[in-house]
Each structure stands twice: as C-alpha cells, then as structure tokens.
C-alpha cells in the first residue's frame, strides 16, 4: 500500500516540473518565432504604411499609422512614372520567356527521357552542366552577340537570354518527370496511329503537367525580379521592366519618400500576392531544384 502511494507521489513530482518546463519551452519557442517574424515582416509593414504618408509625416512620425489612406501616391506612380509601361513589359518578357523555355525544354526532355540513342547521356550531361554555371559570367560575349544580331534594346535580348539560362534546370526536372511515365502509354498511342510528335503532344505532355508548373515557377520568379540583363541590354525607357524602371523612378523622385515607397509596393505586389495565394505550389516549385539536385 505504502509503496504504491509513494510511487504515485513520485510520478506526480517528476511529471509536474517536466510539464512546467515544456510549457516554458513552448513560450520561449513561440516568442522567438514571433520576434523573427517581426524582423522579417515589420520592414515590409513600414513600406506599406509609409507609402500612404506625406513626406512631412514620414519624418515626424515614422512608425505611426498614416493620418489618411489615400490612393493618390499609387495613381501618381502608375501614371506619371511610367509604371504601367514597365509592368506591361515585365509581364510580356516573363511570359514569352516562359513559353519559349517550356516548349524547348519539354521537347528536349522528352527526347532525353524516352528515346534511346548514342549521345543521350552525353547530351543530358551537357544540359545539366549549365545548372551550376551562372549565365552572367558570359554576359560580355552575349552582349556582343545581341549587338551583332541587332537585338540590343529589344525584348528579344532578354527573352532569349532568360530562356537559354532556364534550359538546364528545366530539362533536368522535366526529364525526371518523363522518365517516370509507363512505356505502355507510348505503345498504345503508336498502335492508335499517333505520330511521334502526336504521342508527345497529345499523350505524354499532358501527363507531366505538374512538372511544367514546377518549371514555370522555378524560372518565373528570378526572371520577373531580374535587374542585371535589363540594365545592360535595354536603353529605351518604354522597353524597361519593373526592376530597371524602379531605378529610373528613384532617381527622379528621390525627395518624395511617399512616392518611392508606393513604387516599391506596386513593384512587389504581384509576386507577393501570387505567393500568398498559392504558397504551396510556390514553395514546392522553388525547392524542387535544390532538393532533387
């Protein structure tokens, strides 16, 4: 009797501090995570509220909420600072590059993943080698090539550069997807009289749709945000993309901080919204390359 009671008391004595300690640990963990979240998000929160403030308000009361929520700075940025043009250019360039890389890489990946021929492995490695090598390091010859092709200061210079630099990762990911498809599908398609291209386009391509989505996201984000190639290739203001347009805009309105913050907010909003709406696909897409590599 006595021993049993002792045991129960003992258990209570050890369990209670452990529970207490776990609770403190939880509080510390959530506290730390919240602090980190503030570090990540507070600057962005400041960006949002500052965009609505007058310059005077920004300097006198940097952390308070704006006295009025007016859309005026955004309208000014959109109209006067050419942002609508930059925005359209960014959409155009990113979309065209995506279409081009999806076409070229899915065709190549299909050949590498489904056909047996002598150079298959060598070509696969040839494509893969580019994953580790940043295209920027070839920018001087690329610049002269674009000049000789009369493509400097056109969107084509960006589209071709982006699509080419996207090939290695896209071919790598899509080849993996194509390799997982069962042989029988191909045979069935051929028996039904499909040509090689029809087999690819009608039967196999629709089956790697998740792969195409991944490839799109992997490439889309860096292209949309790219500053380096527009800086070197694009001169005309009406052809500039958002990141390059931002620098022009900053030079023009350096003293009007409200407008600057409004401009930054407009520039970041599309990807931010896209990320918040489909964060799962976003994350899967962006991590795919690193994890599978």
């Amino acid at each position: 009797m006595a021993t049993r009671l002792d045991l129960a008391a003992e258990r209570k004595a050890t369990v209670a501090p452990r529970r207490w300690r776990a609770a403190v640990g939880k509080v510390l963990i959530y506290g730390g995570l919240t602090l980190l979240a503030l570090i990540f998000v507070y600057p962005l929160f400041l960006m949002v509220i500052t965009a609505f403030k007058s310059t005077r308000e920004i300097f006198l009361d940097p952390f308070g909420l704006p006295s009025r929520w007016s859309l005026e700075p955004f309208i000014t940025v959109w109209r006067r600072a050419n942002f609508s043009t930059y925005f359209r250019n960014s959409v155009l360039v990113t979309a065209a590059s995506t279409v081009l890389v999806l076409t070229c890489s899915s065709l190549a990946a299909y050949a590498l993943g489904r056909y047996r021929f002598r150079l298959n492995n060598a070509l696969y490695i040839f494509f893969l080698a580019g994953i580790m090598i940043p295209i920027r390091l070839g920018v001087l010859p690329l610049f002269l090539l674009m000049r000789n092709l009369n493509l400097l200061d056109t969107h084509w210079s960006l589209i071709l550069t982006y699509a080419a630099s996207g090939m290695p990762m896209s071919v790598f990911l899509l080849t993996g997807f194509f390799r997982t498809l069962p042989r029988e599908l191909e045979y069935a398609a051929r028996i039904d009289g499909c040509s090689e291209f029809q087999t690819f386009f009608r039967v196999m391509l629709p089956l790697v749709r998740p792969g195409l989505a991944t490839v799109t996201i992997v490439n889309f984000v860096p292209w949309w945000n790219d500053f380096f190639f527009p800086l070197l290739f694009i001169q005309s203001d009406e052809l500039k993309t958002i990141p390059l347009g931002m620098t022009i805009f900053f030079g023009q309105y350096m003293t009007d901080w409200g407008l600057l913050f409004a401009g930054m907010l407009i520039a970041s909003l599309p990807l931010l919204l896209l990320y918040l709406v489909m964060s799962r696909q976003f994350i899967e897409g962006l991590t795919a390359g690193a994890v599978k590599g």
């Binding site: 070229c104 040839f126 699509a163 690819f200």
Partner: peptide, 16 residues
Amino acid sequence: FLLPGLVLYGVFMVYP
C-alpha cells in the same frame, strides 16, 4: 525534339 533546345541553349548560353 532536341534541336530547338540545343540551339537555344548552345547559342545563347554555352557559346557566350
């Protein structure tokens, strides 16, 4: 199937 990709990648990435 390989040709477009090879040309794109070869001309605008490998060559530079």
